[in-house]
C-alpha cells in the first residue's frame, strides 16, 4: 500500500485529528472566553467525527431490521452513532452552562478578555 492509498483509507481519521488540533489551538491560545468556548466545541466535534468514522463502512446499509434484511455484515455499526448522541447532549449542556457563566462574567467585569479579567481580579484582591 503506497502513501496515497494509506492517506485515502484514513482520510476521516486524519481529518478528525486536524480539526482536533485546530480546536486545541483555539482553546489554548485565545484569551477571549467566547473563542475558547467555540474551540471546545470544535474539539468535541472532531472527537465525534472520529468516533462515527470508526463505525462507518463505505456503501454499508442502515442498521434497521426488516424482513428483507441483507446480510448483517453490510450494516454500519450503529453503536458509535448512539454513543455520539450521548456525547452531543453532554456537549450541548456544557456549552449552555459555559455561555451562561460567560454572561455572568461579562456582567461582573465588563470584558471577556481573560488577561484583562485576571488583572481586574488581582486589583480587587489587593484592595
Amino acid at each position: 500500500m503506497n502513501a496515497f492509498e494509506l492517506f485515502v483509507a484514513n482520510i476521516h481519521f486524519l481529518g478528525a485529528v486536524i480539526i482536533f488540533v485546530i480546536g486545541l489551538y483555539m482553546v489554548i491560545a485565545h484569551p477571549n472566553l467566547m473563542k475558547r468556548i467555540i474551540g471546545i466545541n470544535v474539539m468535541s466535534s472532531a472527537v465525534f467525527y472520529f468516533f462515527v468514522a470508526i463505525g462507518n463502512i463505505s456503501g454499508g446499509e442502515v442498521p434497521i431490521v426488516n424482513p428483507e434484511a441483507l446480510t448483517p455484515a453490510s450494516f454500519i455499526n450503529p453503536l458509535p452513532s448512539a454513543l455520539i448522541l450521548t456525547g452531543i447532549v453532554i456537549s450541548v449542556s456544557i456549552t449552555v452552562y459555559a455561555l451562561a457563566l460567560m454572561i455572568k462574567i461579562y456582567q461582573a467585569y465588563g470584558t471577556l478578555n481573560q488577561d484583562e479579567i485576571a488583572e481586574l481580579m488581582k486589583k480587587e484582591a489587593d484592595l
Binding site: 449552555v96 452552562y97 451562561a100 457563566l101 454572561i103 455572568k104 456582567q107
Partner: peptide
C-alpha cells in the same frame, strides 16, 4: 429552560 436561563443570564 436553558433558553430562558440564557435570556436571564442565570446559570
Amino acid at each position: 429552560t436553558l433558553f430562558s436561563a440564557l435570556i436571564e443570564g442565570e446559570p
